[in-house]
C-alpha cells in the first residue's frame, strides 16, 4: 500500500491543512516511510484479541445531568480571534 500525492491531498483536505503541490510530494515520501514501518504489526496474529479502550480498568463515572458550570461568556470568548455579541464570529457560511 502506498500513499500517493492524490491521497496526501485527500487526507490534508480531511485534516483541514492546506498542503501545496510541492509539499505533497515530500509528504507522500515521509508518510510512506512511516506507514511502511508500522506495517510490521501485520505479522502478529491478533484474532480474538480485544482492542484496548482504556488502559486503567475503571467504570465510566456518571454524574447528574445538570448544569454545573457556565455563565461567563466574556471569559469563554476572551481568546477568540473574532467575537461579537457574546458569540464566536466566523466568515460567512450561508450565502
Amino acid at each position: 500500500m502506498s500513499v500517493d500525492k492524490k491521497t496526501v491531498a485527500k487526507i490534508a483536505k480531511l485534516a483541514r491543512i492546506r498542503v501545496d503541490e510541492a509539499q505533497q510530494e515530500a509528504l507522500s515520501g515521509e508518510l510512506n516511510q512511516i506507514l511502511g514501518w508500522v506495517e510490521q504489526l501485520s505479522e502478529l496474529d491478533t484474532s480474538g484479541v480485544e482492542p484496548m479502550t482504556s488502559v486503567v480498568e475503571m467504570t465510566q463515572p456518571l454524574r447528574e445531568d445538570v448544569v454545573n458550570d457556565g455563565g461567563y461568556v466574556d471569559r469563554v470568548t476572551k481568546n477568540a480571534p473574532e467575537s461579537a455579541h457574546g458569540f464566536y464570529a466566523v466568515p460567512k457560511v450561508v450565502e
Binding site: 508500522v38 504489526l41 501485520s42 502478529l44 491478533t46 484479541v49 480485544e50 482492542p51 484496548m52 479502550t53 488502559v55
Partner: peptide, 13 residues
C-alpha cells in the same frame, strides 16, 4: 491500522 494497534496494545499490556 487503528484497531490493529489497539489489539497489539492489549498484548503489550
Amino acid at each position: 491500522y487503528y484497531n490493529k494497534a489497539r489489539q497489539v496494545r492489549t498484548l503489550i499490556a
